[in-house]
Amino acid sequence: MDLNYLKKLIKMLDSSNLSEIEIEEEGTKIRLSKPKQKIATQLPTQIITPYPSITNINPQPAEIKEKPEPTTSTEEFNMSKIFEVKAPMVGTFYRSPSPEAKPYVDVGSTVKEGTLLCIIEAMKLMNEIESEVGGKIVKILVENGQPVEYNQVLFYIEKP
């Protein structure tokens, strides 16, 4: 897969009024779609380094928290019991080892210290992020494939 080719496609889609492009070529199928403001890239199997989507990163972490949440329904948290898992680096956030695989954790998952939570890809390296505490995942603040900055809150873990 030629990344530049993909990049061109993304740019094309971005500047168009289309909401979706699908291309099939020599057994490889690419579907690009544009939900609301973001572009999600759906990649064929065994692509280890999906190209990150174009997203403005907000310098104000407070505002990031206010973005719509992808997974949770209840919004009431007893913050004194919540441990915030923060991104230790800049990169692209992935919830699973590959697009087809199950997420490492979901809302409701019980985690121990050392449980693998997610991957942050930086410079084509997949960095595994482990939990520093034990507890229950009560909120996931970042969508799969979204770029994250240093110290951005990724998960809420409710301590027992």
């Binding site: 990150p52 403005n56 800049v90 410079m123 240093y150």
Partner: peptide, 27 residues
């Protein structure tokens, strides 16, 4: 656009090559 790349120590931020390159990639 602005991206927070690390703690105050220059080695972890303004001198940290992987973090800067990763920022260029995601933006």
């Amino acid at each position: 656009e602005a991206v927070c790349i690390g703690p105050p120590e220059p080695e972890e931020s303004y001198l940290n090559i992987p973090r800067i390159i990763a920022t260029a990639e995601i933006t």
